[in-house]
Design a protein around this nucleic acid. Structure first.
Lengths: 341, 341
DNA sequence: TATAAATTTACAAACGATTGCACTTTATTT
DNA sequence: AAATAAAGTGCAATCGTTTGTAAATTTATA
């Protein structure tokens, strides 16, 4: 009853009184094997419920059809969208994906990398943890000829293909939109200074102000962590200012939603008394009332592009000498939170 | 410069003029190898940047430390939460996860299963596609001694461990809550009849009505697909009824949000004119105004439980003879959409 | 010092698949 | 009918590890 072991080429060979190599070739439609034999072999393989052993094949080929993905978090909409995009492209190209999460922890990210390398992944797609300052664990992969593609959370000093959203432009567009909508005192709930995306968005904000002839005011920028809770606390600070702002550009959607809640709870009218805009186009932004103006970060698309970039390198068996950086243009999505009615 | 090949045990052996087996044993702290040698070997391994080849080890052990996960969708909050939970438990136990998505397509689900079996996963965690009626591809794994755990979208005729939310109870509680809040004409936006979760929730709804002495009315039940769009169209039908309902229990959150939007857009007051409740506790439910009463489905927790159930079976090397079904009790979360102020 | 016991290390055979090369058959040509 | 070409198969090595068993070395014992 218990059929302890998986059917192997050898089993088929024994059944048919043929050699293992003939079986292998027959299953691969090798021209040296005559049609009749091929069919016989295939039929028998099916009958014996043969599933090729990928682990054995991998060993012999010294390569796998496996892509490793490391993200800080899986449930966040942006990351799960990206994984979704990666999976689609990988699936089409015949790759399977390992998904690991760093939990925003550098140590775990390094461990994940080790484990995936040991599993001999053909390539790695990574969005680094907030606590990751050092990219040596990724740079080291070049020696092993394992291509790496970074997305969204990238590291400047790692030479690898990258997929990023144009944070600067997204922030610039968003801020400009607020300016053009007639808002005068535009505040910015910025992210932590050590994160590149925060700084880029801050730069975009400043540039937009400058280009419109607005004066940049230090007190209108409050740095917060990237979650909703800090969005509300940051907003409280802004609302306590002697000169209360009439618009807030938030570094991301959770922060914007925190602001939204705080403002709504005080009975202030959005967007009439104060406008809000976010960044990412999380599903929640459509749901709030009024819905939130934001910049679509195209997580799914970014995942797809990252996977393509990686698979290209895998298939040509070489890591890009001059790594490309694909910039996905974030699309400004104007909704009720910034559109005076 | 190009260090084409990965360091192997052989390389270390050559370096130290020891045999491969000694190296292998030294790295595993085998007692037969003397301390001094062990340390020397480990130091050299590190120096040569040795990463054990998991593919080779897997082949030789005829097993892997890999778990396959198949879900219909990755980006959906519930599924990405579940994957997150699975990853955490798997990581702690030293397993790596393959993530594949069926895209709600039976064929792709079968292909994913094949591929994961070929990759010799130690076990499989699956939430089946909507189009999956037949579980043969999963049942067949028993012969290969590959344990399977189904979660959320389970198949009755597959004998395997399962993790489900108590749909019946969740629906019952939710409906009862609406009754107790004083609503009289409680409608139900139900899911497709071929889905088990739909039917269970419908049953819970009916039972709650019955137990409260309410009469069940066929016309108050509208079957819809599980997304927001169908939530609004379903709601339109309900609102066109001669006797407009004063409460809607929706089969899941997207549908509830569709209803929420439709009702709000007509200027009707929630919850005063009409109450709404959903199912899943998606992030969006907290964001709408008023926030949505719902049943928390604990996706993260379900993932954890599923992974535990699977790893148990893997480690004891045997598939549960009498498969357990873990029922996660959905927690009714009462929010503004059903709480008359 | 010889011998037994204990310690340390090496040999070699797996695991399942792939593939270059050699060897049979059978078919073709002269 | 013999020689040659073509077609179909099989042999055996290989991938990097693990591990049972044998061998070699050291240490302890008599």
């Amino acid at each position: 009853m218990k059929n302890k072991h998986n059917t192997t080429l050898k089993d088929i060979a024994n059944h048919l009184d043929l050699s293992i190599s003939t079986i292998s070739r027959a299953l691969h439609d090798h021209p040296a094997i005559k049609q009749e034999t091929r069919e016989l072999v295939k039929a028998t393989a099916k009958r014996l419920d043969y599933y090729p052993d990928t682990t054995a094949r991998n060993l012999q080929k010294r390569s796998t059809n496996t892509i490793g993905v490391i993200v800080p978090e899986i449930r966040h909409f942006f990351f799960s969208s990206a994984i979704d995009g990666i999976e689609d492209i990988a699936y089409q190209a015949g790759y399977t994906i390992f998904v690991a999460k760093s939990n925003e922890d550098y140590g775990r990210e390094v461990l994940n990398t080790r484990s995936l390398v040991s599993n001999r992944v053909a390539g790695l797609i990574v969005s680094v943890a907030q606590t990751t300052k050092n990219g040596d664990h990724l740079t080291a992969l070049k020696r092993r000829n394992i291509p790496v593609v970074l997305f969204d959370r990238v590291l400047d000093d790692v030479e690898a293909c990258k997929v990023v959203v144009d944070d600067y432009k997204g922030a610039y567009d968003s801020t400009t939109h607020l300016i053009e909508s007639g808002y005068k005192k535009i505040a910015h709930l910025a992210g932590p200074s050590h994160l590149k995306i925060s700084m880029e968005r801050l730069k975009g904000y400043r540039a937009a102000l400058r280009d419109a002839g607005y004066k940049f005011k230090e007190e209108l920028v409050v740095h917060v962590e990237l979650d909703e809770l800090h969005g509300t606390t940051g907003t409280k600070k802004l609302l306590a200012l002697p000169q209360v702002p009439d618009a807030i550009f938030a570094v991301n959607d959770p922060v914007a939603i925190g602001a939204h809640k705080e403002i709504s709870s005080r009975g202030m009218k959005i967007p009439d008394e104060i406008a809000i805009s976010g960044f990412s186009n999380n599903p929640s932004t459509e749901i709030v009332n009024p819905p939130l103006t934001t910049v679509d970060q195209h997580g799914y698309k970014m995942g797809q592009v990252a996977a393509q970039l990686l698979i290209e390198q895998i298939e040509q068996g070489a890591i890009s000498q001059h790594p490309r950086t694909e910039v996905v243009i974030g699309e400004l999505i104007i909704r009720g939170s910034s559109r005076k009615s």
